[in-house]
């Protein structure tokens, strides 16, 4: 037996939040992207409920343009931990005529995910959606609550948010409303990586440096792939790269890297002069890109 438990305050806070979700809501779900933040959430949920199983399913909104490594990782994790996984596809929303595929140079299915997500919330009557967003990612997210109430249309009313005092979480909602829950709100990108290293958590291989066919556009490194629109003059080269954030292929840029271990990755993040969302093509659309998407229900 160990002698004294000294808590890691951010970890203890996240576990407290996850237990509040299980206690306060009827049908919670964990939004799982296969990225490092949602993988960290899964580990925290294991810790919150051990020796019982995680008492809610995972939901993956699949754009169809995910990296195959992420999907393989997702399926392996779910099998190993005996979790329930629900997958809903953006392709189905397109086929049903609910959203229209973007065309051209910057086309992406990233913003189309919102419709598929809102439909899944309605289909399963989820009242709490747990996500891995962090306040340090982006300035609109810096003002996000831990329990963030959304109306029937999934909208975020940023000027009318419930104040959150001490660690008391108010999850009381009306029928039709739901709550987005962000247990790692107070973690930084470096906190997440250091935690993954300390806990020795497995992550998808694309987070480590690997050889990949890429091309350059607007100073960013794009994956050369059938799903990513590329002009004839945009030349493809093979480079050693890795990903700092894992989203859809069409909106996630790679960074040049030699980092092949967690130690390398942590060292690289610590010295990095580019923010994580600096490699997110979707944020560059305008100064308020994230806030605008959040207001209409984006995760």
């Amino acid at each position: 037996m160990n002698s004294l438990l000294k808590p890691n305050p951010k970890e203890a806070e996240s576990i407290h939040i996850l237990r509040e979700v299980a206690a306060q809501f009827e049908r919670p779900v964990l939004l799982f992207s296969g990225g490092k933040d949602s993988i960290t959430l899964v580990r925290l949920a294991q810790k919150a409920f051990f020796p019982a199983k995680i008492p809610f399913p995972l939901l993956h909104v699949d754009t169809g343009h995910n990296f195959p490594e992420t999907i393989a990782f997702r399926d392996k994790l779910v099998a190993e931990l005996g979790l329930e996984l629900i997958v809903r596809n953006v392709q189905d929303s397109i086929d049903q005529g609910k959203v229209r595929e973007e065309r051209g140079r910057y086309s992406s299915r990233n913003s189309l995910q919102t419709t598929t997500l809102l439909d899944a919330i309605e289909e399963f009557k989820f009242d709490a959606c747990i996500g891995g967003a962090r306040r340090d990612e982006e300035k609109a997210r810096a003002k996000e609550r831990v329990f963030s109430v959304r109306d029937d249309f999934g909208q975020w009313d940023e000027k009318n948010q419930r104040p959150e005092l001490f660690d008391m979480l108010n999850g009381r909602i009306h029928i039709g409303q739901n709550v987005r829950v962000f247990p790692i709100s107070n973690w930084t990108e470096l906190d997440v990586w250091e935690y993954i290293r300390t806990e020795n958590i497995e992550i998808p291989s694309i987070y480590y440096a690997h050889k990949r066919e890429v091309f350059f556009r607007d100073g960013m490194i794009w994956t050369a792939n059938e799903h990513v629109f590329r002009e004839a003059h945009e030349e493809v080269t093979e480079l050693m790269v890795r990903f700092r954030t894992v989203g859809d292929m069409t909106c996630t840029a790679a960074v040049l890297s030699e980092a092949v271990s967690l130690d390398d990755v942590v060292a690289e993040i610590r010295d990095s002069t580019i923010s994580e969302r600096g490699a997110r093509i979707d944020d560059k659309r305008s100064e308020a890109a994230m806030e605008t998407r959040k207001k209409v229900g984006y995760f």
């Binding site: 037996m1 160990n2 002698s3 004294l4 438990l5 000294k6 808590p7 305050p9 970890e11 203890a12 806070e13 576990i15 407290h16 237990r19 294991q46 810790k47 919150a48 051990f50 020796p51």
Partner: peptide, 17 residues
């Protein structure tokens, strides 16, 4: 006193146990 898959003799203030 349990924290994840470990047992402890004592837990300090702030622990989620």
């Amino acid at each position: 006193i349990h924290f994840f898959d470990q047992e402890y003799q004592e837990a300090e203030v702030g622990s989620s146990i």
